[in-house]
C-alpha cells in the first residue's frame, strides 16, 4: 500500500500508518518527525527524507529508508528493525534498548549514545561507513559494529566510548588508540567474537548486497569498558 505524505503533518502520517495494511510505502516524505513512533507490526518503506526521531520508541515494526536519515533515529527503540540505505545523522539509536539499526553509509556524532541491554534484550547497530565523534558515548549495553567500508580506512573520529560502562563496540580493522579514553580496553576480536559478528553480519550483507565473507575477512577490534563496574565507589560503595 502506497501513501503520499507530501505536505502532511507527522501526526497525520502516523494516523494513516496505524490505519494501513502491514506493508506500506511512504512517498514524498520531507522532514516529518516521529514517523512510526512506538509501532510494532508494520513494515514501512520511506522515499524521501524522514525527519528527526524516526522510529522513536519503535516496538517491533520494520522501517527501510531509501536514502539518508536525519537525527535521533530509533530514539529509545525497544524492538524492531531500521534500515538506512544512506547516511544517518547525529545521535542514532539514542538510549536504544532492543532491536536493530543497520546503516549503509556513515553515522554522525554520538551514534549509540547510552545504548543499554537487559537479559535477552540486546540492541545492535551496524554502521557500514565510519562513525563521527563520541560513538557509543555512555554506552551501557548492546553492540555497535563499525565496518569502515568505502571510507579510505576511516573508522571513527574523536572520543569514542567516552563514559562507556557496558556493551561492546566492534571495529573492522584497528581504530587509532589515541582517540579513546583510558577506561576502555581495546583487544583483537577472539574467535568467539568473530562468530558473534558473523551472525550479525549475515543479514546486514544480504540487505545491502555485500559479500559477507569479504566483510569478515579482516581483523576486528573490540572495545569494552575495562572492568565490569568502572565507576565502582565513585559515588557510593557498591
Amino acid at each position: 500500500m502506497m501513501i503520499d505524505v507530501t505536505g502532511l503533518e507527522f501526526n497525520e502520517i502516523n494516523q494513516k500508518l496505524r490505519e494501513s495494511d502491514n506493508k506500506v510505502i511512504l512517498q514524498g516524505c520531507l522532514g516529518q518527525r516521529f514517523i512510526a513512533s512506538g509501532m510494532k507490526d508494520k513494515n514501512i518503506a520511506i522515499d524521501g527524507i524522514p525527519g528527526n526521531a524516526l522510529g522513536a520508541y519503535l516496538n517491533g515494526a520494520s522501517i527501510t529508508v531509501n536514502g539518508n536519515a536525519q537525527d535521533a533515529v530509533g530514539d529509545t527503540m525497544n524492538d524492531g528493525k531500521i534500515i538506512i540505505h544512506g547516511d544517518i545523522g547525529d545521535a542514532a539509536g539514542y538510549a536504544m534498548r532492543g532491536g536493530k539499526i543497520y546503516i549503509k553509509g556513515n553515522a554522525g556524532y554520538r551514534a549509540g549514545i547510552h545504548m543499554k541491554e537487559y537479559q535477552d534484550k540486546v540492541p545492535i547497530m551496524i554502521i557500514g561507513g565510519s562513525a563521527g565523534s563520541f560513538l557509543g558515548e555512555y554506552q551501557a549495553g548492546g553492540v555497535i559494529v563499525v565496518l569502515g567500508l568505502n571510507t579510505n580506512g576511516k573508522l571513527v573520529s574523536n572520543f569514542p566510548c567516552t563514559g562507556m560502562h557496558g556493551g561492546k563496540v566492534y571495529f573492522r580493522g584497528e581504530p587509532p588508540k589515541s582517540v579513546f579514553p583510558k577506561n576502555v580496553c581495546l583487544k583483537l576480536a577472539t574467535q568467539e567474537d568473530m562468530k558473534y559478528i558473523e551472525k550479525q553480519i549475515v543479514e546486514y550483507a544480504e540487505i545491502f548486497g555485500y559479500n559477507k565473507d569479504e566483510i569478515l575477512n579482516a581483523p576486528f577490534t573490540v572495545a569494552t569498558p575495562d572492568s565490569n563496574n568502572p565507576y565502582k565507589q565513585m559515588y557510593v560503595a557498591n
Partner: peptide, 21 residues
C-alpha cells in the same frame, strides 16, 4: 539544520555531508 530543508531548495542536491564540530 536538516537535510529536508536543503531538499526543499534543491531536490537533487549532491555531496550531502555533515561537517565535524
Amino acid at each position: 539544520s536538516e537535510e529536508a530543508a536543503i531538499r526543499v531548495m534543491e531536490p537533487n542536491a549532491e555531496n550531502m555531508y555533515a561537517p565535524a564540530g
